[in-house]
Amino acid sequence: MNIFRLAGDMTHLASVLVLLLKIHTIKSCAGISLKTQELFAIVFLTRYLDLFTNFISIYNTIMKLIFLGSSFSIVWYIRRHRVVRRSYDKDQDTFRHFFLMWPCLILAIFINEKFTLKEVMWTFSIYLEAIAILPQLVMLQRTRNIDNLTGQYIFLLGAYRAFYILNWIYRYFTEEHYVHWITWVAGVIQTLLYGDFFYYYFQSWKNNVKLELPA
């Protein structure tokens, strides 16, 4: 494991912890898109089908369990928790997110590294992750006012993607036969989606003002 991969995993982990912290301690999910959280839960479920059959390392298994557990508990909190669910801005979160799944599934059936159920589901999760943030970005654009924790959550998610790209570049030059077009193209698209947000995040940080997106 290289430093970029570790930094990517740690920012990913931090993003999940920030979101759980917000939900658990403030008992609020204001500004958070349930649609995006549901897509992330599906992403992890379909990606980690090999959790018990393909052992890579203790680190890998624990991280997979954390991402699975946290994504499903976040969805549970927003949908079921007596207090938290009242802070959910349902009217601002209208993205028809399940429609995003069909193109991903069709693409995964036709463009994959191997045509087996596990491999197609894994590829599907890669495609779905690339666009899973869209409902959240649409919601941000609508509410415009973003509280600190929500801003940090999305910033950390974007940082995770950026570090993964550096990790791929590093691995390409240091490992033999490390070429994965599917993950790379999907990963770059995913990272580009955060570009706009990053711009405004850094602007507000530089000028020391509250993060607000333009209408």
Partner: peptide, 10 residues
């Protein structure tokens, strides 16, 4: 067997 696998990533 290829040495680099994307399956060891999360």
């Amino acid at each position: 067997e290829r040495s680099g696998s994307s399956k060891d990533e999360l």
